[in-house]
Simulated assay, not measured.
Amino acid sequence: MAKYYSKWEKALGRWRALRLSLVNRQIHPKAEIICSHLYGTDKIAIGERSWLYYCRVRVSSHSKYIHIGARTKVECNAFLNAHKGYITIGSRCFVGPNVIIQGFGGVEIGNHVMIAGNTFISSSNHIFEGVPADEFLDREEGAKVVIHDDVWIGSNVTITAGVEIGPRCVIGAGSVVTRSIPAGSVAVGAPAKVVKSIPL
């Protein structure tokens, strides 16, 4: 752990989690929140021994919640934004640097999921057809993204709204996932296609 942050930062992170846990019982006092920005702490849950390192977690007043399980790591510059919806991340997960997760239509991530750096997960689309240009940014529709247990997502992957990735899948680096991926699959490419099966 020392390679990530100093003893002082570690102690400060533990103290901050303990202080927040006194106000919000959904934040475990043994979590570590190190130099991270949390907006809407009353709607955020963080499990035991999870640590957030120089990242942002945002739940606005019109959003639902963000729940992070136990022993999950969220790396530097990651941005979890509930954006009128919700995000759930299971236990023993890894969210790499610069990962963006947008929860407008809901994002559900299981246990033991690894998400490498610079990945973008979006649960919404803008409505373009038949919409005046000045209204385009305001017209948005959500579709839930589900990532099941034991999934490994490579770096620079984009996962679009409405996608479901089955258990024990691998998504190759740089892939664009526009359709659901069945359990036990290796998928690569843009758009991502299944190239191999993994024994379940």
Rank of each mutant, 00 (worst) to 15 (best):
M1F: 10
M1L: 07
A2E: 15
K3T: 07
Y4C: 01
K7V: 15
K7H: 13
W8A: 09
K10I: 12
L12M: 02
G13F: 11
W15A: 12
L18M: 10
V23L: 14
N24V: 09
N24H: 12
N24A: 06
N24F: 05
R25G: 10
H28K: 04
H28C: 04
K30S: 12
A31V: 09
A31L: 08
I33G: 03
I33M: 07
I34R: 05
H37F: 07
L38Q: 08
Y39N: 13
I44L: 00
R49S: 06
L52S: 08
V57L: 12
S60E: 14
S63N: 12
K64M: 10
K64Q: 15
K64F: 08
Y65L: 15
I68K: 07
I68N: 02
G69Y: 09
T72M: 05
K73V: 15
K73E: 14
N77E: 14
F79L: 08
L80G: 02
H83G: 03
K84C: 11
Y86T: 02
I87A: 01
I87W: 09
I87S: 00
T88Y: 06
I89T: 03
S91E: 13
R92Y: 14
V95L: 06
V95M: 06
V95D: 09
G96S: 13
P97M: 13
N98F: 14
I100H: 09
G103R: 03
G105V: 06
I109V: 11
I109W: 08
M114V: 14
I115N: 04
I115G: 00
N118A: 10
S122M: 08
S123C: 08
N125H: 10
H126V: 09
F128R: 06
G130F: 15
V131W: 11
D134T: 02
D134A: 05
E135K: 11
R139Q: 15
E140N: 02
E141S: 13
G142V: 07
G142T: 11
V146Y: 01
W152L: 12
I153F: 10
G154Q: 13
S155R: 10
V157W: 03
V157D: 05
I159S: 01
I159H: 00
T160H: 13
G162L: 06
I165G: 02
I165L: 04
P167L: 07
R168T: 08
C169S: 10
G172M: 05
A173K: 07
S175R: 01
V177Y: 03
V177N: 01
R179F: 03
R179W: 01
I181V: 14
A183Y: 04
S185Q: 06
A187K: 01
V188T: 04
A190T: 15
P191D: 12
K193Y: 13
V195R: 08
K196R: 15
K196A: 11
S197K: 11
I198A: 07
L200T: 13
L200N: 09
L200K: 09
